[in-house]
Simulated scan of single mutants.
Amino acid sequence: MLRSYLRLTLFAFGLLVGIQVPGFIEAYAQHVEARRLEAQQGLQGFQETAQRFFNGDIHALVQHYRDSDDPVFQSDAQSVEQLVRRAQMLEREWQAMQQPWYARAVHVLLGAERSLRQQVWNSYRYQVLLVPEAIAWGLSCALLLAWLVESLLVAASFPFRSRARRYKGYR
């Protein structure tokens, strides 16, 4: 009886963990989009200058700042270049979050920008979503976790069962 309750508890735990997956992926996608829009807004003035003087090539603007004799422009070149790199990284992350659900899940798990994922994790609030996607994730994780633990327990007890059966055969 206790073993059945432990199985149910394990299944419920897997279900609750699995239900969090789509919520976290959505939170990550929203975080990336907000940061991306913020980065685009921060670059807007530089983008307009690059459009006016360098045919829209922001990298040419940065190089122009670098090549300037003015130390203020040289310093700004580093700042603008950091803004450009951040905007490009956020654009890549945003593009990754436009993929199918399985590609988004793999990306958030394995390929996401660590600092962004950590920021989302720190601010994430656990929730129970009752949408088909969350239910499917929950049931899948619950079944997988229950199956893995049950398989490990059966595998761990296998050597002990075979010894007991061997001893019974000699009597």
Rank of each mutant, 00 (worst) to 15 (best):
E91F: 12
W147K: 07
G42M: 12
Q40M: 06
L144V: 13
A60C: 04
V72W: 05
E33P: 03
L109F: 14
D67C: 05
Q30H: 04
E93T: 11
G111V: 02
D70A: 00
A77R: 05
A60L: 15
A112E: 02
A146G: 02
Y65K: 03
G56H: 09
A77C: 06
R85S: 08
R52N: 10
L129P: 08
C141E: 00
R104S: 11
Q99H: 06
R117E: 09
G138T: 10
L130Q: 06
V128Y: 14
A87L: 02
I25M: 01
L145K: 05
E150S: 10
I25S: 00
A87N: 08
R125Y: 04
G23V: 08
Q82C: 05
I25A: 02
V80Q: 00
P22H: 08
Y124G: 12
H107W: 09
E133L: 14
V106D: 15
E38I: 03
A87D: 10
V80R: 00
L145Q: 05
E38H: 06
A29W: 02
H64P: 04
Q88E: 15
Q74N: 14
L43C: 01
L130W: 12
T49H: 08
A146V: 06
E113S: 12
R104F: 14
T49M: 13
W137L: 07
A103F: 11
F24R: 02
W101F: 15
G23F: 03
P71M: 09
V21K: 03
L16G: 03
E33W: 06
